[in-house]
Amino acid sequence: MPETIRARLLLDCRNILAEGIQWHGEQNKLYWTDIHGRALWSCNADGSGAAKTDFEKRIGSFAFTDQGTLVIAHEDGLAHFDPGNGGLRELFEIEADLPTTRLNDGRCDRDGRFVFGGLDEDGLRPLSGVYSFAGGTSATPLITEVGCTNSLCFSPDGTRMYFADSSGKRIYRYAYDRATGAVSDRAVFAELGNSEGAPDGSCVDAEGGVWNAQFEGGCVQRFLPDGTRDIRIELPVSQVTLACFGGGNLDTLFIATAREGFSPERQAEEPTAGGIYVAELDGIRGLPEERFRGRLPL
């Protein structure tokens, strides 16, 4: 019988839609975005030292560079942010001809490309796409007809990419060409049941296990590389968005949650929704988050 673990509250920040969570090993800090709160957050591993930087646009996801700056996927396109001086430079727009879409999930592949995608805010219609940014002034389309991009993550050897369209119930696995960044051979990796919510963000551990956050499902579910269900992390809130490995040994799972569209009654039922949760794992470690290694336009 797969193990069930209860997560505990780390930071009661009550974000509207916490997403993009990742651990910065050199800084020993946790970073995430509150999309609808238009802010980038950070804190220490024990939840102390919480800090927030406000933005004009909603940030869906981001990737650090080796210089400590960030490539940001916001609602309109990509930007470059320097937290040292607060400088924000727009790079280029994505889906400028689609006014109802915004960028959402994203992370770097094992070779430092930033892979990201969007969603349609008017009913999750299949209008958006998934893109790869290796540097320069444009991004390469990878997947089309997407309603809501989520679960972008890569196997430890970088030869498989995972993706879910949260308008449905399936997580897909693709063959991933590390030399070119191209995807092929799509196959169903896992499928959520009717009571499990929608597949939201995912991360991968050192053994190749995929940890998927279930939005409106109240948990993070680990899937083994063959798609079999394994450990389940349960939370006392329903909107679970993404998890990441962090801490000194990368054996702590940090989990972002949301309170998107909550009524006052639901806020009372789930008062800590939108907070950051944590679960300590025994014998399972994650992988360091990859950095963006492409050349940014001047």
Results as ranks from 00 to 15, higher is better:
residue 77 G to R: 04
residue 280 E to W: 10
residue 57 K to I: 03
residue 157 D to P: 06
residue 57 K to C: 04
residue 221 Q to D: 08
residue 240 V to T: 14
residue 225 P to K: 14
residue 166 S to E: 02
residue 101 T to Y: 04
residue 68 G to K: 10
residue 80 H to L: 13
residue 23 W to H: 06
residue 10 L to P: 00
residue 90 E to S: 04
residue 137 T to C: 05
residue 81 F to R: 03
residue 11 L to F: 09
residue 294 G to S: 05
residue 32 W to E: 10
residue 117 G to P: 04
residue 101 T to A: 07
residue 95 E to A: 11
residue 147 G to W: 05
residue 102 R to K: 08
residue 261 G to H: 06
residue 41 W to V: 15
residue 138 S to I: 10
residue 276 I to M: 09
residue 157 D to N: 13
residue 220 V to S: 13
residue 298 L to E: 15
residue 55 F to D: 12
residue 153 C to V: 00
residue 249 N to S: 12
residue 293 R to D: 08
residue 118 G to T: 15
residue 198 A to P: 00
residue 43 C to N: 07
residue 287 L to H: 00
residue 194 N to Y: 03
residue 291 R to M: 13
residue 20 G to K: 01
residue 276 I to K: 08
residue 195 S to Y: 11
residue 277 Y to L: 08
residue 149 T to W: 01
residue 199 P to D: 09
residue 90 E to N: 07
residue 213 A to R: 00
residue 225 P to Q: 13
residue 208 G to D: 02
residue 238 S to Q: 15
residue 10 L to F: 02
residue 167 S to F: 05
residue 142 L to N: 12
residue 58 R to T: 15
residue 232 R to E: 07
residue 190 A to Q: 06
residue 248 G to H: 14
residue 128 S to K: 03
residue 15 N to H: 12
residue 32 W to F: 13
residue 192 L to S: 06
residue 215 F to C: 07
residue 249 N to G: 04
residue 190 A to W: 03
residue 155 S to H: 02
residue 266 R to C: 10
residue 136 G to Q: 11
residue 72 I to A: 04
residue 3 E to Q: 15
residue 169 K to H: 07
residue 98 L to G: 03
residue 260 E to D: 12
residue 109 D to R: 08
residue 9 L to F: 09
residue 259 R to N: 10
residue 155 S to N: 03
residue 151 S to L: 03
residue 278 V to F: 01
residue 1 M to S: 15
residue 121 E to L: 12
residue 242 L to V: 14
residue 34 D to M: 07
residue 171 I to W: 00
residue 139 A to S: 09
residue 272 T to H: 11
residue 168 G to F: 06
residue 95 E to H: 06
residue 81 F to T: 06
residue 297 P to V: 15
residue 159 T to P: 09
residue 84 G to D: 11
residue 198 A to N: 11
residue 294 G to E: 13
residue 102 R to N: 05
residue 286 G to D: 00
residue 200 D to V: 13
residue 232 R to Q: 13
residue 94 I to N: 01
residue 42 S to K: 08
residue 188 V to D: 02
residue 266 R to H: 11
residue 222 R to G: 07
residue 17 L to F: 08
residue 23 W to N: 01
residue 216 E to W: 11
residue 83 P to I: 15
residue 154 F to C: 06
residue 227 G to T: 14
residue 207 E to C: 08
residue 116 F to V: 01
residue 148 C to H: 12
residue 205 D to I: 12
residue 287 L to A: 02
residue 223 F to T: 01
residue 15 N to G: 15
residue 77 G to F: 01
residue 108 C to T: 00
residue 136 G to M: 09
residue 171 I to E: 04
residue 228 T to A: 14
residue 204 V to Y: 00
residue 236 P to R: 05
residue 197 G to L: 10
residue 273 A to D: 07
residue 261 G to P: 08
residue 204 V to H: 00
residue 83 P to G: 15
residue 265 E to K: 14
residue 59 I to W: 01
residue 73 A to D: 03
residue 249 N to R: 15
residue 29 K to Q: 11
residue 36 H to D: 14
residue 53 T to V: 14
residue 82 D to E: 04
residue 262 F to N: 02
residue 173 R to F: 03
residue 17 L to H: 11
residue 262 F to M: 10
residue 287 L to M: 14
residue 249 N to P: 00
residue 201 G to Q: 02
residue 161 M to C: 05
residue 207 E to W: 05
residue 206 A to H: 07
residue 69 T to K: 12
residue 152 L to S: 02
residue 268 A to M: 07
residue 117 G to A: 12
residue 106 G to L: 09
residue 51 A to R: 12
residue 274 G to H: 06
residue 17 L to G: 03
residue 276 I to W: 09
residue 88 L to R: 09
residue 118 G to C: 13
residue 26 E to D: 12
